[in-house]
Amino acid sequence: MTLPTTDDAQLRTSDTGAEMWEFAEDADPAEARRAYPSGWLWVTGEDAVRSLLVALLDADPDARYGFDDLASRVDADDAAVERGIDALISLGVLVADEGTYRVNEHAIVYHAAGELSRAVEATGAPDDESGLAYLARLESVRLMLDALLEADRDRSLTQEDVHLLTGVSRKRVWLHVEKLVDLGVLEETGDEYRLGPESPILRLVQSLDAAVVGATLAPSHP
């Protein structure tokens, strides 16, 4: 299965997580996270994959879509659309069906992405934008969420901590961390941040992450 990031990327699992941090000793933490993407970064890291998944969240599961139908839903060239389709087939979200494609509404990745998108929409996404698109549009936010997947709920983080964990520049952390505060993923405590105890969004990001890893490692799709 080809990862929708770079050709030499290795999916981050419990077995490869330590390798990411070894790589990070000689590289930018952001580069290390891209080289060892979590399931969350796997599915949101390439524009065409993310945009196609977002577009399909409202698709008719009984409909059949041709390549041109899917390509018209994303702003990408044909090669990128093909990679997006291949990625979503391998995750069980799309099923190839006699030269067309249909959405598998029962796929755990599809279900997890839909739940996350609706939770973001209920919390603060603009009315004209999908919750998943709003949450995952910026790489800085994707990387910060990636770092929070396994964060200790009792630990406070400064903006400098977030910078060191993610490789996101200090300026971009300062600019975009408030998005996670507004969505309840983080709450401010003075000059520090803690995981928000009431927000379902981080939990649903974790669910999507686990769904992608599970589908990637043990595919069993129709």
Rank of each mutant, 00 (worst) to 15 (best):
M1D: 13
T2A: 14
L3E: 01
P4W: 01
T6F: 03
R12E: 09
S14H: 10
S14P: 11
A18K: 13
M20R: 14
E22P: 07
E25Y: 11
D26I: 11
P29V: 00
A30I: 14
R34P: 05
A35K: 14
S38A: 08
L41H: 07
T44L: 04
A48R: 03
V49D: 09
V49G: 04
S51Y: 00
R64I: 03
D68P: 08
D68Y: 08
R73L: 12
A76G: 02
D77S: 02
D78K: 10
V81P: 01
D86H: 15
I89H: 08
D97G: 09
G99W: 02
T100R: 15
E105C: 11
A107I: 06
I108C: 10
I108G: 09
G114T: 08
E115D: 15
S117E: 10
R118D: 07
A119G: 12
E129T: 03
G131C: 07
A133E: 15
Y134G: 06
L135V: 06
A136E: 06
L164Q: 11
L164V: 08
V168E: 02
S169H: 08
S169C: 06
K171G: 14
R172S: 13
H176V: 13
V177W: 06
K179E: 15
V181G: 08
V181A: 10
V181F: 01
L183I: 11
G184R: 12
E187Q: 12
E187Y: 08
E188I: 11
E188V: 15
E188L: 13
G190Q: 04
R194C: 04
D209R: 00
A211D: 02
G214A: 08
A215T: 07
P219G: 02
S220W: 03
P222A: 00
